[in-house]
């Protein structure tokens, strides 16, 4: 059933956000410390555990893939509700922030690429990552 996948996704998200909340109050900051990251970690671990045991049906996967497929539209909606009028004055900062990082990152690729060759050869063809969208 598709809802199994969606339910699992919801459990992982809820637990992850709770961990972040708890970590925030433990560390004494008013913040959710890494909650979404923990949730992603949980989802990867639980789904690969289930898949390995053959307990995760393709239909359950669809209950997750739908949500990953519409994340760009959700980001579009999120963008449309921000206070862009006030943010305009920071526009140049955003442009420099974006460009600077990419420039340095591109320059570093050849050096990082040379560190340690892969242990085993990579699989000739990876499964299409389900985050693929916009088709």
């Amino acid at each position: 059933m598709m809802i199994y996948g969606t339910a699992l996704l919801a459990i992982c998200t809820l637990i992850g956000i709770s961990i972040g909340e708890e970590l925030g109050s433990f560390l004494g900051v008013k913040a959710n410390v890494g909650g979404v990251g923990f949730a992603m970690l949980l989802l990867i671990l639980t789904t690969s555990w289930l898949i390995k045991r053959g307990r995760f049906r393709p239909l359950s996967a669809e209950g997750i893939q739908f949500w990953s497929g519409i994340y760009i539209p959700i980001v579009v909606a999120m963008s449309a509700k921000q206070n862009v009028v006030v943010a305009m004055k920071g526009g140049p900062a955003a442009i420099v922030a974006g460009v600077l990082g990419v420039g340095i990152s591109f320059a570093m690729i050849p050096y990082v690429n040379r560190i340690g060759a892969p242990k085993d050869a990579l699989p000739a063809k990876l499964e299409e990552v389900p985050t693929e969208n916009m088709r």
Binding site: L9, A10, C12, T13, G16, I17, G35, V36, A39, M40, L41, L43, I44, T47, S48, A61, I64, Q65, W67, S68, I70, Y71, I74, V75, M78, V112, N113, R114, I115, G116, A117, P118, K119, D120, L122, P123, L126, E127, V129, P130, T131
Partner: peptide, 24 residues
Amino acid sequence: FRDFAIVATAFGASFEDLKRSGVS
């Protein structure tokens, strides 16, 4: 919805593939 959808994008990534791809 945003957090929910973003967490969903992690689905399909596997640590084994990451390990296999090497330290770089």
